[in-house]
């Protein structure tokens, strides 16, 4: 139930309602008149009369109730037999219609698309020409895609990373068990959730553990490589972060929560995500500010192809990658046991 504010009576909505109600409705008038009439012709009823009236009223009520019950029964019957058929038919009809409509709209749209790979397509305008021709000298990134998403359109990528972060926050709000919040760790609800989760799970599988012990370092290393070389070769923060997150999930599956919690807890998630996003926002704010005002910036494209080049791009890749990695791992653990 909603709580009422203290000054509710003086706020605008009740005042408006009172103002509207102040004009009496004709119905109220009629009711008042009827009441007055009965009051004028007021008389004491004898007991027989009262009993007779009561009986009449009860009979009327019974009749009404029976009629209502019949109506409901008829309605229920209709709903279960004829109505169900109708609803099914309507449903099928609508489903087919909607599908056909969507197919028609999509085909119509596809018919108006420009031919693939044609030189005169609207996508081949001065923007993409600029990206392809001047992208490397302007951003210092050999990988044009990295130059686009982390330099020309860095604001957009900041939004994307924040979307990931917000999604993780929403999952934490929805799925994190209340006991997990005080940080004491192994409360009854948490242990129960974990036991429930691992009931059918093969526990401490030796083959999986041996494989994970061998592979996890390489997976993490490969993820870091994809992240660090995002401005030179295909890859970047999003893919590298996804690879690292997958490696962490493999480790967690092989060795269980107890070992994974030694290096990745809720605090780790919080610190890494917030630090990476703040770094992204701060550094890009500096770059935007100096760029827009024509000031001298210490961020330079450098020599394309070197690992320390392309200005902010490698660092932004790392920030994005860590956010993606943390988000993936957090999703997985939250869905499995309601805590990180």
């Amino acid at each position: 139930m909603a709580r009422m504010r203290k000054d509710y009576e003086t706020s605008w909505w009740p005042r408006l309602r009172r103002w509207i109600d102040a004009g009496a409705s004709p119905l109220d008038d009629a009711l008042e008149k009827a009441l007055d009439e009965t009051r004028e012709g007021h008389q004491v009823l004898s007991q027989e009369e009262a009993a007779e009236r009561e009986e009449r009223a009860e009979a009327r009520q019974r009749l009404d109730r029976a009629r209502e019950a019949r109506m409901y029964a008829r309605f229920r019957e209709w709903r279960q037999q004829k109505g169900r058929r109708w609803a099914n038919m309507l449903y099928r009809l609508l489903a087919v219609t909607v599908c056909l409509a969507i197919i028609w709209v999509l085909l119509e749209t596809a018919a108006y698309l420009p031919p693939f790979g044609h030189a005169d397509n609207p996508a081949h305008n001065e923007v993409s020409r600029r990206y392809i021709e001047d992208g490397m000298t302007e951003t210092g990134a050999v990988n044009i895609v990295a130059g686009m998403i982390l330099d020309y359109r860095a604001f957009d990528t900041l939004g994307e990373s924040n979307v990931l972060f917000i999604a993780a926050c929403a999952v934490i709000i929805l799925l994190r068990l209340p006991d997990a919040r005080d940080g004491s760790g192994h409360t009854a609800a948490l242990l129960e959730a974990e036991a429930d989760d691992r009931m059918y799970e093969p526990k401490n599988d030796a083959i999986l553990q041996a494989t994970a012990r061998l592979l996890t370092p390489f997976i993490l290393m490969f993820g870091l490589y994809v992240m660090f070389y995002g401005h030179i070769s295909p890859g970047g923060g999003f893919s590298g972060g996804a690879i690292m997150g997958a490696g962490l999930i493999l480790y967690l599956n092989a060795f269980g929560f107890k070992k994974a919690e030694r290096f990745f807890t809720y605090t780790t998630f919080r610190v890494i995500s917030v630090a990476a996003l703040s770094f992204y926002a701060g550094s890009k704010a500096y770059s935007f500010f100096t760029g827009a005002n024509g000031l001298h910036s210490f961020i330079t494209p450098g020599t394309p192809g070197r690992i320390f080049s392309a200005g902010l791009i490698p660092y932004l890749n790392i920030a994005v990658g860590f956010v993606v990695c943390c988000t993936m791992y957090a999703f997985y653990t939250l869905f499995r046991k309601g805590d990180l």
Partner: peptide, 21 residues
């Protein structure tokens, strides 16, 4: 090499899960 190292493990886990469940 990576696929040869991982996919038998995945099959093994699936089989073990089937036996358990």
């Amino acid at each position: 090499v990576f696929l040869w190292a991982t996919s038998p493990v995945a099959s093994h886990l699936l089989g073990r899960l089937e036996i358990t469940a």
